[in-house]
Simulated scan of single mutants.
Amino acid sequence: MSRWILGVTGGIGSGKTAVTDHFQRLGIVVVDADLAARKVVEPGQPALAAIAAHFGDRVLDADGRLLRPVLREIVFSDPAQRKALEAITHPAIRETLERELTAADSPYAILASPLLWESGQSALVRRTLLVDAPEHLQIARASARDGVSPGQIEAILKAQWSREQRLARADDVLLNDGTLAALQAGVERLHAGYLQEAST
């Protein structure tokens, strides 16, 4: 892929969606890794057939759809099973992302991925933008949004890269600890720079 691609990432509750929504309002195509991950396991997709072949019919409902909670329980209790699942899904996800990014018709495109570095998807992008927020804000936002206990949010945070690891790897950082208007102004400032960089 020769197009100029920005990778946008951030921990749970950091405000990634608010940021990518504003980039979209500015005319930039956003390709979402989470949506790609859902698409590749829809009925009729080769990845779903491979998952059923490996894990058995217990991971499918009566309509042949993936039972995510059942699969999640299996893979999070056994690292070898998680690796087996990733070996099935990661190539399919990457292929979907590459296809959608190549088809993007904006001056540059965005790959939004919560696990940009951990998944190796950062290899697809020219520059990375971290949406950053203090941990107490992440926990408060995510538990209010998802109706999940702060304890569960903390467990998710521990499973992801630390804030320090992300800050050390990011090319650009957008701190989201204020108002939505301030966040959107930050997006617009970065967007002007990215337009310039993508056109050279």
Rank of each mutant, 00 (worst) to 15 (best):
residue 172 D to Q: 03
residue 145 R to Q: 14
residue 130 L to H: 05
residue 154 E to C: 05
residue 174 L to C: 00
residue 180 L to S: 12
residue 121 Q to V: 10
residue 198 A to I: 04
residue 149 S to W: 01
residue 132 D to F: 00
residue 47 A to V: 00
residue 12 I to P: 06
residue 48 L to P: 00
residue 171 D to L: 00
residue 166 R to P: 04
residue 148 V to R: 13
residue 55 F to A: 01
residue 143 S to N: 11
residue 89 T to Q: 11
residue 18 A to E: 03
residue 186 G to L: 06
residue 13 G to C: 07
residue 21 D to Y: 09
residue 11 G to S: 12
residue 165 Q to Y: 02
residue 105 D to T: 11
residue 143 S to M: 15
residue 191 H to C: 03
residue 163 R to W: 05
residue 119 S to Y: 12
residue 115 L to H: 14
residue 174 L to P: 12
residue 200 T to V: 12
residue 100 E to L: 14
residue 168 A to I: 07
residue 4 W to G: 08
residue 40 V to E: 10
residue 151 G to M: 11
residue 121 Q to H: 10
residue 80 A to P: 15
residue 144 A to M: 09
residue 173 V to R: 10
residue 83 K to F: 15
residue 37 A to W: 10
residue 148 V to M: 14
residue 169 R to D: 07
residue 28 I to E: 12
residue 94 R to K: 09
residue 189 R to L: 05
residue 144 A to E: 10
residue 161 W to R: 01
residue 159 A to Y: 02
residue 94 R to L: 03
residue 142 A to S: 15
residue 157 L to D: 07
residue 124 L to H: 15
residue 184 Q to G: 10
residue 76 F to G: 08
residue 80 A to W: 05
residue 128 T to C: 06
residue 177 D to K: 04
residue 169 R to P: 01
residue 126 R to E: 12
residue 99 R to D: 08
residue 163 R to P: 09
residue 140 A to K: 14
residue 40 V to M: 05
residue 82 R to M: 01
residue 199 S to K: 11
residue 88 I to M: 10
residue 65 R to C: 09
residue 120 G to K: 08
residue 97 L to K: 08
residue 195 L to G: 10
residue 197 E to M: 03
residue 37 A to Q: 03
residue 199 S to H: 06
residue 193 G to R: 13
residue 51 I to E: 01
residue 19 V to K: 04
residue 184 Q to M: 13
residue 96 T to N: 10
residue 8 V to M: 14
residue 20 T to C: 12
residue 81 Q to I: 03
residue 46 P to L: 00
residue 82 R to Q: 15
residue 127 R to I: 06
residue 62 A to D: 11
residue 35 L to W: 10
residue 42 E to K: 13
residue 158 K to N: 09
residue 191 H to F: 01
residue 148 V to W: 12
residue 169 R to E: 02
residue 77 S to N: 08
residue 153 I to Q: 13
residue 60 L to H: 00
residue 181 A to M: 09
residue 171 D to I: 02
residue 89 T to W: 06
residue 31 V to F: 02
residue 45 Q to A: 01
residue 95 E to K: 10
residue 125 V to H: 06
residue 69 P to E: 09
residue 68 R to L: 14
residue 9 T to A: 01
residue 90 H to W: 07
residue 110 I to P: 08
residue 131 V to K: 02
residue 129 L to Y: 00
residue 56 G to R: 08
residue 95 E to D: 05
residue 101 L to A: 15
residue 175 L to W: 03
residue 149 S to V: 06
residue 115 L to K: 15
residue 135 E to H: 00
residue 95 E to S: 05
residue 81 Q to N: 04
residue 167 L to P: 00
residue 29 V to Y: 08
residue 176 N to W: 03
residue 140 A to R: 11
residue 117 W to E: 13
residue 70 V to Y: 05
residue 56 G to C: 04
residue 125 V to I: 11
residue 153 I to H: 06
residue 121 Q to E: 15
residue 122 S to K: 13
residue 107 P to R: 05
residue 103 A to D: 05
residue 79 P to Y: 13
residue 16 K to E: 08
residue 151 G to R: 09
residue 130 L to Q: 06
